[in-house]
Design a protein around this nucleic acid. Structure first.
Lengths: 196, 196
DNA sequence: TCCATCTTGGACTGCCTAGTCCAAGATAGT
DNA sequence: ACTATCTTGGACTAGGCAGTCCAAGATGGA
């Protein structure tokens, strides 16, 4: 049977991430993780101890591979309105993927575990704050009132959560909304197009 | 034991609604419904047949008692920007309630069942479309470009989903976002404040 | 070669689930 | 008062769950 491990933690986590992404936390059984990883219960439990620990590792992996690259441009010192617009434009094209209706693993987890599992709340709050801060950074450099930049950051943060929920039941509508957001944001670049 | 029914369907549904609202669909066991209604399994199953049928009835009751009164003002013929702003202002004050962290039963259901239960998708799509149409009605009467009104309707629809997810893990942040949305929307009433 | 150490498969436990079923009993019409 | 009809409590079924455990076996060092 064994002797030395036939897999790395990273391989396990990547395979598990796909399952949690497709099926959610509660919807994923240990048997599903076995099937996806090709490992047996013992190996999974020896490596991580609990289902929840595997999930936490999967979410962390997701954040660094999926979330970070998309938020970083907004957090960069030189970020502006164009980066905020590009953020949503890229979602619009992503939503054309066949598997986009899985949504965002992190936001799915926030929606699924919020209020039910207090230990996940800090993760939700941290991600929400990070997103808001990233938009505030991008809009803060633009030619607009700083209070308005704050309001718009909050609005875009809520919109981001909203489109990632929407993509799970209506990907086309989510893509349309992202394109609308892109154009609306671009209109913030210049001091209002309808002023002569 | 019996003879004639000791309860009405409506009473059962209202009690069940509270449980589903607090605990979600999967998180609610028939035993929880028994405890909340004071009825036994037989009575519940005789009245509705399946857990899912009880849930559907609870969602329908929720829509007519909670959702309809809040969306109707946006759908009225004379609705405008002020109604859209009031929509979010009322959420901001609602989010100060102790039990606001249950979120919105309908949006919770959309998030929980999207992609997992195809039979719920039409409900999600219908509600999303209704909300978008309501905002489009309210903004369509305002002094703004009709394409911009369309974009902003999509944005506010996504924002609405977003704040109802947010309230479950950070009610204060959700309330802040609603106030920001209110003020941002009010700024749409006049043709841009920074134009002389 | 031998042995201590680690991994592995899979059986198992205990618990929780939705849904079924039936005997006990209450009711209303006659 | 009798009886057909409906409701009710609660035991029960069948299945799914996370997590435990151990014997079988592979490995690497001495």
């Amino acid at each position: 049977m064994s002797g030395k491990r036939s897999f790395t933690d990273a391989e396990l986590v990547v395979a598990a991430k796909q399952v949690f992404w497709d099926r959610g936390y509660e919807g994923t059984a240990i048997d599903d993780l076995q099937a996806a990883t090709g490992l047996s219960r013992s190996s999974l439990y020896l490596a991580f101890g609990t289902k929840r620990a595997v999930f936490d590792a999967a979410v962390a992996e997701y954040v660094s591979s999926f979330v970070d690259p998309r938020i970083s441009p907004l957090e960069a010192p030189g970020a502006g309105v164009r980066e905020a617009a590009a953020f949503f434009r890229e979602f619009a094209s992503y939503y054309r993927r066949a598997d986009a209706d899985r949504g965002c693993l992190l936001i799915n987890a926030m929606a699924e575990l919020a209020g039910r599992d207090p230990s996940f709340s800090p993760v939700s709050v941290a991600y929400h704050d990070r997103l808001r801060g990233a938009f505030a950074n991008a809009l803060g450099n633009a030619a607009m009132d700083s209070k308005q930049a704050g309001r718009r950051s909050a609005m875009l943060t809520a919109s981001t959560l909203g489109v990632w929920i929407t993509v799970r039941f209506d990907p086309a509508a989510a893509a349309t909304t992202c394109r609308a957001l892109e154009r609306e944001i671009l209109s913030w670049e210049t001091p209002a197009p309808h002023c002569s």
